[in-house]
């Protein structure tokens, strides 16, 4: 299939940013009971429910490997929806912005309602997000991943496209008070390739999560600094 013909995504340097908002030891101490949400996907992409669930399960497996007890998305999703209904939408149409207090209250209420009211320590939001991928030296790079943007038929094409769109697995970890503790994106795959003649060709939606190796790599990039403390991490930004 087409997926097998595509150039592989290879991990390169870690994604940039300062994902930890509190010392690493404090975050790890909170990873006892973690609720994980269903995968959110941008509206313009279609991902089958089975693929969504499989990706979230990869994330859950990583957390369990780190010793966490995971509340599955089947429970977390409805709790978050109910809390959002009670607190109101995060977006504030009157002020034209985002109401952070309302959002924190939503997260806090959802966390407290889980595990039969015993609550969880953290809530992990999981989604797919798009990012700009800069092209240099024949590779598109974004969020720790790199991929050849050209197709086989286009290798002779010498055109240059300095930016493309890459898809990433994104995670946001919120603490018991609704504070953002950690966020990270792990590059998954390019959303477009360059075909013969240099035209932009979308990757089929069916292929976005079809490669388990890519999926695992992207999840690893997204969770890496959280679960495997890298040198130099742990200080507040």
């Amino acid at each position: 299939m087409a997926a097998a013909l595509l150039a592989a995504t290879v991990p390169v340097a870690p994604a940039g940013g300062r994902p930890l908002n509190i010392p690493h030891e404090q975050v790890v101490a909170l990873l006892r009971h973690v609720a994980i949400t269903p995968l959110s996907v941008p509206d313009d992409l279609m991902v089958d429910a089975v693929d969504r669930a499989a990706l979230v399960e990869l994330v859950a497996t990583e957390l369990r490997g780190a010793g966490a007890e995971v509340v599955p998305p089947g429970e977390t999703g409805p709790a978050l929806t109910a809390a959002a209904g009670a607190n109101g939408a995060r977006a504030d149409p009157a002020a034209g912005g985002v109401d952070d207090e309302r959002w924190k209250a939503t997260l806090r209420d959802a966390e407290r309602s889980l595990r039969g009211g015993r609550g969880v320590d953290c809530l992990l939001l999981v989604g797919l997000r798009t990012s700009q991928a800069a092209v240099a030296n024949g590779l598109a790079r974004w969020n720790g991943a790199a991929e050849d943007p050209l197709t086989g038929a286009a290798r002779a094409f010498q055109g240059r496209r300095p930016r493309m769109l890459g898809l990433s697995v994104a995670v946001w970890l919120y603490g018991p008070e609704g504070d953002l503790l950690y966020w990270r994106r792990g590059g998954l795959r390019l959303l477009y390739k360059l075909g013969a003649g240099g035209q932009v060709v979308p990757v089929a939606d069916a292929d976005l999560l079809a490669d388990p190796v890519r999926n695992a790599r992207a999840v690893g990039l997204a969770l890496g600094p959280l679960l495997e403390r890298p040198a130099g991490a742990g200080s507040a930004p």
Binding site: P202, A204, D205, A206, A210
Partner: peptide, 17 residues
């Protein structure tokens, strides 16, 4: 248009599951 290819591929994936 890649849309036509995308159509059959996404439906195939969903139905196969």
């Amino acid at each position: 248009s890649p849309a036509f290819y995308g159509d059959i591929r996404i439906l195939d994936r969903i139905l196969s599951h």
